[in-house]
Design a protein around this nucleic acid. Structure first.
Length: 208
DNA sequence: ATGACGATTTACT
DNA sequence: GTAAATCGTCATA
């Protein structure tokens, strides 16, 4: 058995609407400060297309302190805080200076399940079954202990957070479905474009 | 300086 | 089904 191959800069330097479905079935890995390894299989993603995309933080070419990382090279982690209490994690992709990214919305827990569950219980204050551990963008960040301290880190070189290649193709995890993105009703026409993808058979997606 | 709002989650009717 | 929680960010003044 050989060491798992990590996603490279070149792998991530592609359009978000191509990367989002390609990341389904891949393994997201988080190494905690104490060395604990947490991971899961990505089962739901969304693409954000940059300046033309009214649902993106970079809509209209907006460039602020918050979304600055989106303008960086592909492979950076864009982590932002929202609704006064939640974090969301994106993989910056495309070309440098092109503010496009893929939001990781859900994963199927793989390694460190009990630790991830403990993270969720600490925030939610209730019992958490497996399908509730990382079935949503903010839930996933809670489970993996991702917050703004990780904003801007390099997924290609960092040991704290990265993506491992898993399987050998899209069909290995069963059929993929697509639909409109979640929570972007403010984006007019762009709210209806099908830029969300998920593994149809997974119980770990954000909607049942 | 101020006000409106959010790439969500949770609980409650 | 509706609404609360909760505060950083952004546009406007």
């Amino acid at each position: 058995m050989t060491a798992a191959e990590r996603w490279s800069r070149a792998d991530l330097a592609i359009a978000p609407e191509l990367l989002a479905p390609a990341l389904l079935g891949q393994t997201l890995v988080r190494t905690l400060p104490d060395g604990t390894r947490l991971s899961g299989t990505i089962v739901e993603t969304e693409a954000y297309l940059g300046a033309r995309d009214l649902a993106a933080h970079s809509a209209g070419g907006r460039r602020t302190a918050r979304n600055e990382v989106m303008y960086g090279p592909p492979g950076l982690a864009y982590v932002y805080f929202t609704y006064g209490m939640h974090h969301c994690f994106n993989v910056v992709c495309g070309a440098p200076e092109e503010p496009v990214a893929v939001l990781i919305r859900a994963m199927a827990p793989l390694e460190g399940i009990d630790r991830m569950r403990a993270h969720r219980i600490a925030r939610a204050g209730r019992s958490i079954v497996d399908r509730e551990i990382a079935s949503g963008p903010a839930r996933l960040c809670q489970a993996l202990s991702i917050d703004r301290a990780l904003n801007g880190i390099d997924l290609v070189t960092s040991e704290e957070l990265f993506i491992e290649r898993a399987g050998d193709g899209a069909t290995a995890d069963g059929p993929v479905q697509s639909g409109p993105r979640i929570g972007v009703a403010y984006a007019g026409e762009w709210a209806r474009v099908e830029l969300r993808w998920w593994l149809a058979a997974s119980p770990h997606v954000s909607k049942r």
